[in-house]
Amino acid sequence: MNVRTSALYEEIQKIRKRYPDELSAVMPALQLAQVEHGGWLPPDAFREVADALDLTPAYCLSIASFYDMFRLAPVGETVVEVCTNISCGLAGAQRVVEAFERELLLHAGETSPDGRFTLRTVECLGGCGWATIVAVNNRHRLRVTAADVPALVAELREKGSDGNA
């Protein structure tokens, strides 16, 4: 798009070469752009990716908006995602969600005003045997109970964004 982001442009050119058909690079490119833009995809991110892949921003949007892990709105530095699918649900995931809501003073789906935390419930994270699964910036915490939440939140608050040692 413009001179400033040519770093991203170059990175994407590398990704392009990985695939027999360059269109395959659109997902990795968007993933890269999302990191560059602090965890979400502002309109400029789409313009940059589109320019780097010779696509249109609209096309990139149609791809990104299909997948849950692409964000079209800003998220907190620390994204806490609680699985509430069957197995975690049976193991009391809802109690865990409520515990986070209490500790973070957020409703599920919200981002804290200070931009520190986003709390969400998500579909099966693939850890059902070790319920409840909580993903902190995509790092999975296993067997989380409501009782663990206060300590976990305290840890996240001090360790800062990721909290993953």
């Binding site: 309109p43 789409f46 696509l55 249109t56 921003p57 609209a58 096309y59 949007l61 149609s62 908006s65 299909f66 997948y67």
Partner: peptide, 26 residues
């Protein structure tokens, strides 16, 4: 996408949230 190849009018979102759109207000 496949006739004019202008890539302007696209489907957005998934499932019953799907809808036809352009890029933002463009």
């Amino acid at each position: 996408e496949a006739v004019a190849e202008d890539g302007q009018l696209v489907a957005r979102n998934r499932g019953n949230q799907s809808m036809i759109t352009t890029f933002g207000e463009d």
